[in-house]
Every structure is written in structure tokens, then in C-alpha cells.
């Protein structure tokens, strides 16, 4: 179909993204080894979210694909966030 306009991502870009992801993994391992008590969970999840954003954008080509894919993925994550919020509102006010 739209193959002629298909964006070819360079090997170099993928390599640099891998290095970035490995660095973020290293940071999350290091951060969780020191006892930051209640901040540990937040920092670890923030780093995991950053990593997943990078994987979605570059490895899964969302950055280069048609806009509809980005809209759909954003919608699914919003639905998931809403379910988390509703669940914890329930647990917080029991």
C-alpha cells in the first residue's frame, strides 16, 4: 500500500535506542538497590514507563506510523489508567 512512503529507521538509531534502554535499566536496578523506601516504587515505575514509551515510539514505529495508531494507543492507555484510578478509589474509601 503506502510502502513507497514507508520510513526506514537506520541501524544506528536502533543501536542508540538500545544503549539508552540499557542505561535506564541500569539506573532502575541501582536506584532500587539503595533503600529509598516509599519513593522506590514511584521511581521504578517512572523509569519503566519511560522505557515503554521509547519502545512504543521507536521499536514499534509509532513515531513514524500514521497518526491513527498513536491515537488508538493513547486511548487504550487512558482506559487502563481510568480502571486503575477507579480500582484504587474503591480501595481507598472502603
Amino acid at each position: 500500500m503506502s510502502d513507497s512512503s514507508h520510513h526506514i529507521v537506520s541501524y544506528r538509531t536502533y543501536g542508540l535506542i538500545l544503549v539508552l534502554l540499557l542505561c535506564l535499566t541500569g539506573i532502575s536496578v541501582a536506584v532500587t538497590q539503595i533503600e529509598l523506601t516509599r519513593w522506590t516504587m514511584a521511581v521504578a515505575l517512572l523509569l519503566a514507563s519511560t522505557k515503554s514509551f521509547i519502545v512504543l515510539a521507536i521499536f514499534m514505529h509509532l513515531k513514524f506510523d500514521e497518526k491513527i495508531f498513536r491515537v488508538m494507543v493513547a486511548f487504550v492507555f487512558l482506559v487502563f489508567a481510568a480502571v486503575i484510578i477507579v480500582t484504587f478509589l474503591d480501595y481507598a474509601f472502603r
Binding site: I8, V9, Y14, I17, L18, L21, T25, V55, F59
Partner: peptide, 12 residues
């Protein structure tokens, strides 16, 4: 993570 990169590179 490495395997994710290699499979992404295969489409290139």
C-alpha cells in the same frame, strides 16, 4: 532488550 533491537533491525 537486545532481542527487541535485533528484530527491529530485521525490518530495516
Amino acid at each position: 532488550l537486545i532481542s527487541s533491537m535485533t528484530i527491529a533491525m530485521s525490518t530495516t
